[in-house]
Computed example of a mutant assay.
Amino acid sequence: MSESFTTAAVIGAGTIGLSWTALFAGHGLEVRVTDPRPDLAEAVEAALTAAAPQLAARGLDVRGIADRVRLADDVAEAVRGADVVQENGPEDVVFKRELFATLVREAPAHALLLSSSSAIPATAFTGELDDASRVVIGHPFNPPHLVPLVEVVPGARTGEETVARAVEFYRSVGRTPVVERKEIPGFVGNRLQNALSREALYLVEQGVVSPAELDTVVVNSLGLRWSTVGPFLGAHLGGGPGGYRHMAEHIGASMQRMWDGLGTPEQGPEQTEALIEAVENAYGHRSYAELTEERDRRQIAVLSALRPTDNATEENPR
């Protein structure tokens, strides 16, 4: 299947929506953005200005990128004639249920209806829709114009063709889609992230390390490793020539004992305030703009190093 996607509607212009806008426009799509925020024009202009050199560093021709973006007064105007709709609203089931009812009614019958939902599965807000077959989760990682992964998660009523088209669309804009076979709150990426975050909170709470020291551990070990191989391949290689079998048979029992000893952070008001202050002490002296610029610059460097294997995904999406 090969399809031409030419027009995208971005519903919601927060951090994620603005990043999607830049990515879609950078790949030559006509983009219509809508959001009730009063500073929408300024926010879109700032996002495109910041993202253009980053997209250019990834080999895209960003000349005239701003000319491909138009602001829409409401959802109906934004989705008129769209091939793709990317929703980026609040993590609220009622909000998404009402919004997607509008999208089903107002968007063209062929339009993909994609949700950037971070944790809520599609089935939770599509059960009452007249047509839920073209609704599917397309969950990115921040910022989606740089981080390649998109978790494509079909709901109970999502059509097979919709899943295949969503995979094709995300690949067409340089993303790496992974189709997840079962709905689960938080999907895969956020569940993994939260599992690590839980132990990180515990270690800081127990005084083992500071937030900055824990970040240093991750950046200089697990983060470095996981930028090139995932946990299973990393473990397979960690077993030497004997691979994952050797690893499981020789240190599996000790790893199990470690799992049993993983902590549960208290995170009461006192502990939460102490953690907030510790993170602010570590990073609060630098602005958000400075920190994100450094993050994005480093991520671009990693992505450039990984470019030969970009978008290495299974041919069969489901």
Score class of each variant (00 low, 15 high):
285 H>P: 06
158 T>G: 02
75 V>S: 11
133 S>M: 09
317 P>M: 03
194 N>A: 12
302 V>R: 08
109 A>E: 15
107 A>N: 06
160 E>H: 04
37 R>Y: 08
166 A>K: 01
244 Y>P: 04
1 M>Y: 11
72 A>F: 04
69 V>M: 02
250 H>P: 11
18 L>K: 05
202 Y>S: 09
241 P>M: 03
106 E>H: 06
6 T>C: 08
22 A>Y: 01
179 V>M: 03
175 R>K: 13
58 R>G: 09
274 A>G: 07
122 A>Y: 03
4 S>A: 14
86 Q>R: 02
77 E>H: 10
155 G>K: 01
306 L>N: 12
75 V>Y: 11
144 P>R: 05
13 A>R: 03
149 L>K: 06
178 V>F: 05
89 G>L: 00
174 G>S: 02
252 G>K: 07
173 V>D: 03
109 A>Q: 13
41 A>I: 14
16 I>V: 11
41 A>H: 13
104 V>C: 09
172 S>K: 05
295 R>G: 11
298 R>V: 11
253 A>N: 12
301 A>I: 00
248 A>V: 15
92 D>S: 02
189 G>W: 01
9 A>C: 02
206 Q>M: 10
181 R>C: 04
74 D>K: 08
13 A>P: 05
25 A>Y: 04
12 G>H: 05
10 V>G: 06
213 E>G: 08
295 R>M: 08
259 W>Y: 15
146 L>A: 10
16 I>Q: 06
62 V>W: 06
